[in-house]
């Protein structure tokens, strides 16, 4: 369950941002999570709840913004959609693919009062 470590790193960033902005409470958190990234949305949501328990971010709404996967096909020489690692190029059916989008795990914003 490496999502626990990810949630802990996430909380450090949230707490630091909240403190710098003199926040009393964190109301919601927006996280961009690519479909090819190393975290499962459900596991990350659960870990967020555990990690923020008893903190300034307790009970905050946790919004996950899913980013689609994209790859550069070296055969077709263009960007193609990649729904998961190990899927072929939809045009040439080959696997000469380099991921260009979808591995993001990023806090986009937080909502504070």
């Amino acid at each position: 369950m490496h999502e626990m470590s990810l949630a802990k790193s996430m909380y450090e960033i949230i707490e630091e941002t909240a403190r710098k902005n003199n926040a009393k409470q964190v109301k919601s958190v927006q996280v961009e999570l690519g479909v090819l990234s190393h975290a499962e949305p459900d596991a990350l949501t659960f870990a967020f709840e555990v990690v923020t328990h008893g903190t300034i971010a307790e009970g905050a709404r946790f919004d996950i913004i899913r980013l689609s996967g994209k790859a550069w096909c070296m055969v077709c020489a263009r960007t193609v959609p990649l729904p998961k690692l190990g899927a072929p190029c939809p045009d040439c059916n080959g696997y000469q693919l380099a991921v260009t989008q979808g591995d993001e795990m990023r806090i986009a914003s937080i909502e504070i009062i």
Partner: peptide
């Protein structure tokens, strides 16, 4: 409530 941009990797 106000939104604060973060844009930082986990």
């Amino acid at each position: 409530p106000r939104m604060v941009e973060v844009e930082r990797d986990l």
